[in-house]
Design a binder for these strands. Structure first.
Lengths: 349, 349
DNA sequence: ATGAAAGCGCTAACAT
DNA sequence: ATGTTAGCGCTTTCAT
């Protein structure tokens, strides 16, 4: 394949408008010290010639790349894609991130990085060196990976940590997992439930703990006990199955169960069916995530919706603000989720 | 934010290894004319210093960018994301594309482009100018958009046209829609059905026609008529509803219906429920796409699986081959889908 | 307010 | 087989 050069460069525009390269550059970047009439003339040439600056060249000369890098855990993401269970986390990320980026003149690039590998650092360093992004968005469990956080911090690249509260580095954003868990718990209490079980997610994710905290707090405040009502899963269907069996197998089983994601809720539903326990007649189920499938189960699942798109959108805004010299927000940004009521939760009979 | 320069450049490596820049460049790009011992020495320095070439700089000097751009229709994609119906086309694209790219040392960038806009050309031209991708992957309906195809052709950028057969430009790949439709039709004929209805997709997509063709051909070969058995939809739930009502409202309704995507199959299922028609007892339904939700409907839907991941993966391979000077395949690449049998299709009673 | 010159990190073309 | 030179398109200095 032959050399493929930029067809219209800043040079063509400068010549066409009869000004220097600098002036064109100033117009492109909306910098001061250009007379309005000059600016107009240059803009006219740009439009006429259909000129678009080359990101590569801009980056080369040390300016912005207008690229925001979003990274997800490789194994987990690929497993979700292969599993085809309708997990649309990536889609919602892209929805929120790409649209906001486009709005602000940026571009979002989505990448997979292996959290567990010994060479996370090298892998990420290579991606950054290659792409030179202006900012990075971290999702769980990357958000809490000290190797990644330190690397970004030292390279002085603005970055967002979604689902993380900790530390002095990076911009923290959370989806109010504790509040959402309280919401779900309160919903069940309001329906008359007293023994409300909880299936926790993988301890590798901070948000797993927060969800448990919310449930415990709401139960405590309602004067309800939680002994024997907590089971630990890891977000997988299999782990949800085991947890549900544990909770429903006791002598005094819960009348409602909150599971920390949809897969584990599905598993709970399945275990209930197996045991001949009617949902929601004898057991209410509330799920987390609200992925597409929860509308198609029998009954459809009441679920806490995770505002992934909005959170990523906010992350983009904050990163770009930070990159432009704005101050790092002192407090984590909290984006609240909502409870979507469907057929799987009902009054205690 | 301060100037962020590459920390380790080719210059550092050259100095460390005591060779010229060129030699390092040759090693990076695996070019000939480097003695093995030299190569080893340079590689050692690269590893030691953790050097990674800057894509921006590589691109600037006219070489590859190692970027493959995949574009989807903006409106449709955003509608799918917002609708949260579990359409995982994008996920499957990323699965196939990103993994293959990574395997070959490339990176896939996913973008949205508005097919219907008057300025598709400008929009795409801008993206290409900014990113300088080594290749582009087009999906329907972009694959048949002459503005886009001509632009890419003239810019001499290798590109794949997924879901398109036409023209002398670009690398065509299809998922054998006709064959898949025949498969579905044959399946129903084998179950004893004689009156098999078909709900077509939007005529804007070539594949809609091919699916109809496959159904018609298989029906004809079995000596079965198709009069009054074809209804046109546009892939939306609403259009599927209308089409199903049309097909099931006649005096001699079909005993089986093939719908051109999952949304329209869902609609058909709904219309059947409304009318008190049992599925699969009185009506068999076969769907297209096999997105996650079809496993959760009652009954689960028999569906033709679209091998999106594999097709995109092949597209990446072919583009990279073309970019390296390989010949353009004369024939369209055909990736075959398969029929996944579930509860919505049963023998005619 | 505008322009000229220097250089970003890399590779193609041309030496040797 | 290796090195030298001249850019790629743009943005920074630093003039004017």
């Amino acid at each position: 394949m032959g050399r493929r050069r930029q067809s219209v460069t800043i040079r063509h525009v400068a010549a066409d408008a009869g000004v220097s390269l600098q002036t064109v550059s100033r117009v492109i970047n909306d910098e001061p010290n250009v007379r309005p009439e000059m600016k107009e003339r240059v803009q006219a040439s740009i439009d006429k010639l259909g000129y678009v600056p080359s990101i590569a060249a801009q980056r080369m000369s040390g300016s912005r790349s207008y690229l925001i890098l979003a990274i997800n855990d490789r194994d987990r993401t690929i497993a979700d894609w292969r599993g085809r269970q309708g997990v649309d986390w990536v889609d919602q990320m892209l929805l929120g991130g790409m649209l906001k980026c486009a709005e602000l003149g940026y571009r979002m690039i989505f990448e997979l990085v292996d959290t567990h590998s010994d060479h996370v650092e090298r892998e990420l360093r290579a991606t950054i060196a290659a792409l030179q992004p202006d900012g990075v968005i971290l999702t769980p469990p990357h958000s809490d990976n000290p190797l990644i956080v330190d690397l970004l911090h030292h390279q002085r690249i603005p970055f967002a940590r979604i689902g993380s509260l900790g530390g002095e580095a990076g911009i923290a954003l959370v989806m109010d997992d504790e509040g959402a868990a309280r919401l779900a718990t309160r919903h069940l209490i309001d329906l008359g439930h007293r023994r409300i079980g909880f299936i926790a997610g993988s301890p590798e994710y901070s948000l797993s703990r927060w969800r448990v905290d919310g449930w415990e707090a709401e139960m405590r405040e309602a004067g309800l006990g939680t002994d024997g009502l907590l089971a630990e899963g890891d977000f997988s269907f299999a782990s949800g199955e085991a947890a549900a069996r544990q909770l429903l197998g006791g002598t005094n089983p819960p009348t409602a169960i909150i599971a920390s994601n949809d897969q584990m809720s599905l598993a709970t539903l399945e275990v209930a069916r197996e045991k001949g326990i009617e949902v929601p007649g004898q057991l209410s189920i509330v799920s987390f995530d609200n992925t597409p499938i929860v509308r198609f189960t029998q009954p459809p699942l009441t679920a806490v919706d995770q505002p992934v798109a909005e959170t990523v959108s906010r992350a983009v805004e904050l990163i770009i603000k930070a990159q432009r010299g704005g101050p790092r927000p002192a407090e984590p940004t909290v984006v609240r989720g909502s409870l979507v009521q469907r057929g799987s939760s009902a009054p205690l009979q």
